[in-house]
Structures are given as C-alpha cells and as structure tokens.
C-alpha cells in the first residue's frame, strides 16, 4: 500500500538537508536520552548474542557456566554445528535442504501469477475488472487458520499429501504458500504497476505491440525493484513459517523445514542447549544474510505495506 511515507530516496533527501530540526534533536539527545537508546539497543541484542556465543562453546562449558563468562571459561568449538548438521539424531542438514526446496518455488510461483494478474488489472480492459480486484483485495482479511481444515481435506481427497504421493508431499506446501501470498502480491504489484505512465503503454500499443510483448519487454524490467521487494518478503515469510509446513506437511519429516524440526527439538531436547543454540543459528543464517544484504528492498517493501494480514 503506497503511502505518504516517502520512499528511501525521499528520506535520504530529507536527511541530506542540514537539519532545521536540530533543536528537536538537541532537546532529546540529552545524556538520559542517549542512555535510554543504548539500554534498548542492548536489551534487543543481548538475547541473540548470548545464544550465538553459546553455540560456539563446548557442551560441558554451556551447562556449567553462563555464556557471559565464555571469554575465560571453557574455550571454543565448532562441534555443536558439526553435530546438528550431520549427527544422526538431529541431521539438520536434511531439513536445511527441505527449507530450500520449499522456499524457492513458494517465492517464484506466486510472484509470476501475481505479476500477470496485476498487469491485467492495471492495463487490460475486461468486464468485472474493478469488482474482481476489490474482491481479491478484500480476501486479504482471511486468516490462514480459517482456510486450513477445508484445504487439508481437499488435498487429502486429491491424494497429494504424504511422502508417498506425487512429488513427495511438497506440492501441498508449495501450493498453499502460493495461494496465501496472492492477494497481497497482486495488490502491491498492481499499485506499483499503475504508477507507470499510461503513455508508455499507449505508444507501445500504437507501434503494434501486443499485451504479451508490453508485459514481457516493458513491464517486467520496470517492475524489477517491486518484484524484488515482494520476493524478499515472501522468502522470509516462507522460510520462517511454521504453521503452513506443520499443517500441510502432514507431519512427515520427509518434507519438514528447519522451523518444524527446531520446534520439535525444543520440545524433546529442551535442555540440550549445545544442540538448540547451533540449530537455531543454522536456521537463522539464511534469513539474516538475505536481510542484511537486501535490507534496502526489505524496508521499501515494508513501507509499501508488505505485511501479511
């Protein structure tokens, strides 16, 4: 949802101007204000940092001393990572693969469908266009819990659940993630697309270009940043999802992603912190890399309203 909130360029332009608001800043940047900011920053960082430190400590050290004593207590090791990735009882390597296999199609498929639909809603004329667009937009309010039981029944009838089925049971997860992403994706991409000047499309049409050419040659390149913004969102959403994988994976570990396995470990081996800490970071590393390297797009997507309703 494009809003009055300026895009990043706007923000940077404002920042670049010498701040007229210096007074406001000065008033709030008293030592107490700085202290408050530091306290919040520390509170927000310490929990993750503690677990990160723990993941590199030997098991015996973890259980006998706090992680804050790690610098002089117990030494360091990579064994925890070796064990969670390759150990036979955890074997997170497999689940890491599952997460990848689930996430990639669940990002590509809905984006493709949504880009096409968004193009049609923005630039093609057909009866019922506005009604259909509003209807799709309105369906954003359906919480995924509401759809789950009937959808699961449907999948079971179609015989696509379970490890023995066609595609090993991944299709239900791919399809569900794709469907749940559509309303928001169509809405956002439509917003971006309708901002592209109409003359561009018109002149291309006059030159004899068909919709398909306009779509592939003009629209897709212009839409790349918007597609990237939504793609990152969908990527993080699918990678971090627990509910969809749990329900539509049919409880089969064959197709479970990292989140499902980690949640299970947290239940069954809740005190084995050498496993849990390393396991958590195995699952965190991909979203963190995506997030840190593509933060610009992420923030842009967030400001445009990429929040799953």
């Amino acid at each position: 949802m494009t809003t009055a909130i300026p895009d990043e360029k706007g923000v940077e332009a404002v920042v670049a101007q010498e701040p007229v608001t210096a007074t406001a800043k000065r008033a709030l940047s008293s030592p107490w204000a700085s202290l408050a900011a530091i306290v919040i920053a520390v509170l927000w960082t310490i929990p993750t940092f503690g677990l990160l430190v723990t993941s590199f400590r030997p098991e015996s050290a973890i259980t006998t001393s706090g992680w804050w004593t790690a610098a002089w207590n117990g030494g360091w090791t990579l064994d925890n990572y070796d064990q969670v990735l390759n150990g036979s009882d955890t074997n997170l390597g497999t689940y890491f693969i599952n997460s990848m296999v689930i996430t990639i199609p669940s990002v590509l498929i809905p984006i493709s469908i949504a880009v096409m639909a968004a193009y049609a809603f923005a630039w093609m004329k057909f009866p019922g266009r506005d009604f259909l667009f509003v209807a799709i937009f309105a369906l954003q309010i359906v919480p995924i819990q509401v759809t789950m039981i009937p959808l699961l029944t449907l999948y079971n009838k179609a015989g696509v659940t379970g490890p023995d089925s066609f595609g090993g049971g991944f299709y239900t997860i791919w399809l569900s993630h794709s469907i749940f992403a559509l309303p928001l994706a169509i809405y956002l991409l439509h917003n971006f697309m309708s901002q592209i000047p109409g003359e561009l499309i018109e002149s291309a049409r006059v030159d004899g270009a068909a919709h398909v050419q306009i779509f592939t040659r003009i629209m897709l390149p212009l839409m790349a940043p918007a597609i990237a913004a939504f793609g990152i969102f969908q990527f993080l959403w699918v990678w971090n999802d627990l509910l969809v994988a749990l329900v539509f994976g049919g409880g089969s570990l064959e197709v479970s992603p990292l989140t499902v396995r980690l949640a299970e470990l947290s239940g069954t081996r809740g005190n084995d912190w050498f496993l849990l800490s390393a396991g958590a970071f195995v699952s965190l590393i991909v979203p963190l890399i995506v997030f840190l390297s593509l933060q610009r797009y992420f923030v842009r997507g967030l400001l445009a309203g990429s929040v799953k309703g």
């Binding site: 989140t259 979203p287 963190l288």
Partner: peptide
C-alpha cells in the same frame, strides 16, 4: 534484526 528471525528461532 529480530524481524528477520523466525518466531521459532
């Protein structure tokens, strides 16, 4: 940063 982390994590 916590926004990028799964709720399970």
């Amino acid at each position: 940063l916590p926004m990028a982390i799964s709720l399970v994590g």
